[in-house]
Design a protein around this nucleic acid. Sequence first.
DNA 1: ATGAAAGCGCTAACAG
DNA 2: CTGTTAGCGCTTTCAT
Lengths: 361, 361
Amino acid sequence: MATDRTTATIHDVAALAGVSTSSVSNVLNGRTDKLSAQTWSRVEDAIRTLSFSPNRVARQLKTGHTPMLGLLVPSTANPMYGQLALNIEAAAQRRFNYRLLLGNTHRDKQQEARMFDDLLSFGVRAVIVISSLDDERHLEKAVSRGLAVVSYDRGAGGDTHSRVDHMSPDNYQAGYLAADHLISHGHRQLAFLLPHGKTVSRGEKIEGFRERVSLCPGASYSASVVEGQVSEAFGDSELADLGFAMASQVAALRPMPTGIVTVNDMLAIGLMSGLTRLGLRVPEDVSVIGMDGLQVSGFVNPGLTSVAMPLAEMADAMVERAIQRSTNPDLPPSDFLFQPVLIARQSVAAPARARKTATTL
Amino acid sequence: MATDRTTATIHDVAALAGVSTSSVSNVLNGRTDKLSAQTWSRVEDAIRTLSFSPNRVARQLKTGHTPMLGLLVPSTANPMYGQLALNIEAAAQRRFNYRLLLGNTHRDKQQEARMFDDLLSFGVRAVIVISSLDDERHLEKAVSRGLAVVSYDRGAGGDTHSRVDHMSPDNYQAGYLAADHLISHGHRQLAFLLPHGKTVSRGEKIEGFRERVSLCPGASYSASVVEGQVSEAFGDSELADLGFAMASQVAALRPMPTGIVTVNDMLAIGLMSGLTRLGLRVPEDVSVIGMDGLQVSGFVNPGLTSVAMPLAEMADAMVERAIQRSTNPDLPPSDFLFQPVLIARQSVAAPARARKTATTL
DNA sequence: ATGAAAGCGCTAACAG
DNA sequence: CTGTTAGCGCTTTCAT
């Protein structure tokens, strides 16, 4: 039961096996050609009896590598990023035996920069960042300092000099699909909801949404973009609260929209709750569609129709890319787009046109 | 724009400032008494102009310390652990400037053990574990190897030899509160729902639940404990699915319970959804109460009544304890219990007794 | 007040 | 095939 503070080192193993430390090192690194089968197993035995495990810190100091991947998300309290973190951790672990260093940034550029500093000082060389802030200069700076950066949730935005990899769901397509779903259910008064502060991904979603609406002939269409006014008060951890609060903003719109797209599921979930509180029924009075495809969205009432992002695939691709690039910084930067898929549930139905205008007057 | 692969070292700083490396080191470590104000500022200047940042790996190799905290959760896809991770990361960062190494264990002892190995090999000396597995021997082993272990979600269980700290919401109290809430609303047929596989915390919750029920006089009470039968298929990432699936198990119970307590919120959310699908109304036909106090629970329909755990406080306490103990392993192990609080929402109402038995026959 | 020197545990030439 | 050796970048006695 005594705490044995001292762990065995490569020297202990070498001594016990009666070989030099380099031979032990060679065993550790699987260089089968450098040892006779004899010595090899002697070393292995010694390793086992001492239950020796190499000190990664020492190894890292020497090699400059460490099997660790940074992950920066706005907030793990948003289930979207919780799921993402799970998938990324699994991919890193399973495929590369990498561990995850996690940071919550709240989309704050300062925090992101601080985290980059720390990652670098820990010797971490690969990081996946979900920020989608307009300005990616701090990412480029991190690249200059030796980090392999994979940016999630935004395209490169035509920046051909970028040395960060971009992997993202096709946000434009997501916006398009959402609008399309509503329109094909007969909705003509649409709205798009987002928190205060436009990120790149939000902009892309809005574009797709608008594009689909603009394809509709006639002046009977309306499509408003509603930005949360309560700015500071709500961050990525309180999106549902924000959605709830925004219900009254929505209800005050004229013409009152019959179909609403939100930039993400938590916002939609909060919105539905707020709408219900206001006496509006979903989907009878107003249809709602979210984006993310959260697990929990299938279990709220009514089930939330949502544009789902292919999480597992993306996680795999991002991890692979980040780690590859950290090994080989000269890879040409990539710009991948993954296709989202609409999951239809109960929160969208055909609008009840006549009644709507009648009652709201 | 060139990638400057080489970062400044303490030698570069020393050279530029015209001092020895030890002086630079002394500046880095704030030993103001060891330098003249003169030299001090010369060194500081050099540090600034080289934008030098000390290599933590080298430092760690020397000192054996690294500002990193391990966190092992069942799955960050469960918002409970997403929120926990957020709070823990914030506390570690804010109060100690520590970073977080995250691992998802799926309550698998092998995974936990592997993670301990890795933490140790990375030189991490403090870890917070949410596992609440019956058997904590692997935790004690980790302690022996030099890890400061804080276990979440279970008491020490009377093990006086334990050298791991235990911090937990008062699960017994949580179970008690939940049953009490139902009973005081007039419910007499109660059930407690949990996934397959009893963890310590689940057992504690059940005990509290049972205790409160046993306080009721008369034979008119029934209290069943329903364990998910679908075992393997559902993990901590799919609790809502499990709850959904368990709705039929619940509906088949005779007498059919009018009030149901679930071991956590995601299970309750799934259950309510499944119940609704079965044509049962919550809370008119059956009341549901969860445990966790997730943010999203306030936004499902009906709002989920839940026993909330004091996340932020606990996160603070756990981080503090873990880091303190990693510095001073001889601290007597603690066993803290935090008090949960019931948040009443719409998922609990008085039972409609007569109707119930009539219709289900 | 400042510097020289010895390592922390490992890897990787380079010799033998 | 196997051993010797020189560091990786930092901290820390111990002299000066």
